[in-house]
Write a protein that binds this DNA or RNA. Structure first.
Lengths: 189, 189
DNA sequence: GCATAAAAAGGACATTTGTCCCAACCCATA
DNA sequence: TATGGGTTGGGACAAATGTCCTTTTTATGC
C-alpha cells in the first residue's frame, strides 16, 4: 500500500555523496502541497524519508489517491519524458525529506549512467505493474474484501493514515468505509 | 481509448529494415490469446497493425481490461525489467501483426541505442500518465458520463468492439452498459 | 438455407454504495 | 475553561449497479 524502492534510494544516496551540488535535498512539513495537478514543473523528487500521497482531484473536489509513496519512490519524473503538465498532485502525509533533480540533471544521469537508467526504467515498469491489479481488484470485489486486503499488506493502516485518505485510496466515500469497518468488526474481523 | 504510438512504430520499422534477423514479425488471427496472465515469457511485442486488448482475469472469470492497444503499442515489455510473471493477458481483438523482440535483443537495443531507450522510457511514462486519470474518472462519475467520454475520444467504439469488452473496459456489467446506452438514446444522446 | 450458437437487449428484483444529515469527540488556542 | 474546526461514527433514505433470467437479433458452420 505504501510503496518503496530501496535499491533506487541506496543508489541515489551513493550518487549524491559524489556530486553534492547537482543533486539537491529538500524537506517538507506534513500536509504540504508539493506538486499541483495541471501545472508545469522542472524537478524530479525521490523520497528519502516519510510518506507522500499522489492524487487526482476532480471538478467536484473529490480526491482519488493513486499511490502512497514511501522511501525511494519518485514523483515528477513522468514530465521529464513528455513536456506536459503533471496529472497528479503530490502532498506530504508525514514529514518528508527528498532528493531533488532538475530535469537537466536527471536527463544527464539517464544518458550517462546506465545503472541509473535501468533503475528508473524498472521503477516506471513497477508503477505500471502495481496499478493494474489494484484497480482491477477494486472494481471486482466488495469494499470489505478490499479492506481486508489492505490489512494484510499494511496492518496498521488505520493508525497512520486518516480515514479520508484511505477511502480516497480505495475510491469510496468515508461513509462506506466506516460501514464496512463496522461490519467487519461485528463479524469478528 | 485505443492507444497508439506512431513514433515508436516508425522507428522500429526503420530499425527492422537494417537488422532483419534480430527483430521478428508475427501475425495473429482475431481473438487469439497471445500472453497469458501469471506465466513467464521472453518476448516483447510491438503492434504493427490491428487491435489487441490487455486484461486481467480474476478468480471468478471476470475480465478487467487495462488498455486497448493499437499500432505502435508494446506489450510484454514490463517483464524485461523485472524477471516476473506477466500480470496481464493479451489477446488480439482484430487480426494482428506485431514486431517481436527477444529480451536479449530488447536489452541490447536499450543499452546501445539512446533514441530507442528514450522512446521506450517515454512509452512507459505515457502508460502511467494515461491510466491515472482514467481510473479516477471511472470511480468518480456515473456510467453515462463515462460512456459519453468514450464517445468523444472514439465515436465508433460500439461498432469496432464487442459490448462485453466495452463493459469490461469501463469496469461494469453488460447489463449496466446496455441500460446506460438505452437511457442516453432516449434522452437524445 | 437452415440449424445452432453467440451476442445483444432488457424486465424484475436484490444489493451495494452514495447522499445528506447529525451527534460525539478530540485538541489547539484565545 | 470555553469555542470552533476537524475528524470520526452512524441513521435513514435514495440512487446506482449487479444478479438472474428471458427474449430477440446477429453471426457462423454444415
Amino acid at each position: 500500500m505504501i510503496r518503496t524502492n530501496t535499491d533506487l534510494l541506496d543508489y541515489i544516496a551513493l550518487l549524491q555523496r559524489h556530486s553534492v551540488n547537482s543533486i539537491g535535498v529538500e524537506a517538507f512539513k506534513a500536509k504540504q502541497l508539493i506538486l499541483e495537478q495541471d501545472r508545469r514543473y522542472n524537478t524530479v523528487y525521490v523520497i528519502k524519508k516519510g510518506i507522500a500521497k499522489c492524487y487526482i482531484t476532480d471538478e467536484n473536489g473529490k480526491e482519488f489517491i493513486q499511490e502512497f509513496l514511501g522511501a525511494g519512490m519518485e514523483f515528477g519524473e513522468l514530465e521529464v519524458f513528455s513536456e506536459k503538465m503533471t496529472i497528479c498532485s503530490v502532498s506530504s502525509v508525514s514529514e518528508l525529506e527528498t532528493y531533488t533533480f532538475s530535469h537537466r540533471i536527471f536527463n544527464e544521469l539517464l544518458e550517462k549512467d546506465p545503472k541509473f537508467n535501468k533503475m528508473v526504467m524498472k521503477a516506471l515498469a513497477d508503477k505500471i505493474r502495481y496499478k493494474a491489479p489494484r484497480h482491477s481488484y477494486q472494481h471486482s470485489y466488495p469494499i470489505e474484501d478490499n479492506i481486508l486486503r489492505l490489512k494484510r499488506t499494511f496492518p496498521e493502516f488505520t493508525d497512520v493514515l486518516p480515514k479520508k485518505d484511505i477511502a480516497n485510496y480505495i475510491g469510496i466515500t468515508t461513509r462506506s468505509l466506516n460501514r464496512a469497518l463496522k461490519d467487519l468488526k461485528e463479524s469478528g474481523k
